[in-house]
């Protein structure tokens, strides 16, 4: 069974149709990257799946729990308990990290497990230190976010998401706010997560990285999925829209 299933998803911002019938399945352990130009709807899709936007129509199911379904042409969200259960199974890493500046690195990671998931403070701390060690930030536990480099901040935000032991982790352009050197730090972390078979959906502009790390690549354009296949298939696509987008990428790579 798919861990994530999206069917016939529609989202408008006023008259602007951002998502126009998205169908997407993600299997357990799979790594899917979503590429596309700005305004193609890829970030909105991620935000809809993480309930930062409400959808107009369509169905989203996560790990067997229905988040939203369609009834009479309208989106109907599930009850609060189901939505909370889904929350704890998913994690989202933002482009701008969005760490809590008034909390230390450690507390940024432990706060949700303790206050939301009901983990004991000792256990949460132990898990947080283990995650920080794993992400090469062992000595930064007592630092505050303003003292971190962008790469460190993004790694802390990944640790914060992982602390809830999500079944699927979403990344919304995780390296777009970073310079190339810091980008490398973060991509390395995502690669390591891939080796551990973490299920991930990554919205990115890092085409080479996406091709290398993903099992499947999705190319979105104007609110629809144009390509959905292995990186080889997508890079070799003869679809003019795909070629035009990848053409720009190949040019900028030169």
């Amino acid at each position: 069974m798919s861990i994530l299933s999206v069917k016939e998803l529609y989202k408008n911002f006023g008259k602007l149709q951002v998502l126009q019938g998205i169908d997407l399945q993600v299997e357990d352990g799979e790594i899917v990257s979503i590429i596309g130009s700005s305004g193609s709807g890829k970030s909105t899709l991620l935000r809809c799946i993480n309930r930062l936007e409400t959808v107009d129509r369509g169905t989203i199911t996560l790990d067997g729990d229905v988040m939203v379904r369609e009834e009479g042409g309208k989106a109907v969200y599930s009850d609060a308990a189901t939505l909370k259960a889904i929350r704890l199974k998913t994690g989202l890493v933002f482009q701008n990290f969005n760490l809590f500046p008034h909390y230390s690195v450690l507390r940024n990671i432990t706060e949700a497990p303790v206050c939301v998931a009901g983990v004991s403070p000792e256990e949460a701390k132990e898990r947080a230190l283990q995650l920080l060690d794993q992400l090469g930030l062992k000595d930064r536990a007592d630092a505050y976010p303003y003292q971190l480099s962008g790469g460190q901040a993004q790694r802390v935000s990944i640790a914060r998401a992982l602390a809830l032991n999500p079944k699927i982790l979403f990344f919304d352009e995780p390296t777009s706010a970073l310079d190339p050197e810091l980008t490398g730090e973060v991509l390395k972390v995502i690669r390591n997560l891939a080796k551990m078979h973490m299920t991930m959906v990554i919205v990115t502009h890092e085409m080479a990285f996406a091709g290398e790390v993903s099992d499947r690549m999705i190319f979105m354009d104007k609110g629809v999925i144009v390509e959905n296949g292995t990186p080889q298939e997508v890079f070799a696509s003869t679809n003019p829209r795909t070629q035009s987008f990848l053409g720009k990428f190949h040019q900028s790579a030169l």
């Binding site: 930062l52 929350r87 809590f100 206050c115 939301v116 935000s157 914060r160 998401a161 809830l164």
Partner: peptide, 9 residues
């Protein structure tokens, strides 16, 4: 707000 929301606060 968004970070807090996705963490389940």
């Amino acid at each position: 707000y968004e970070a807090a929301a996705v963490l389940g606060f």
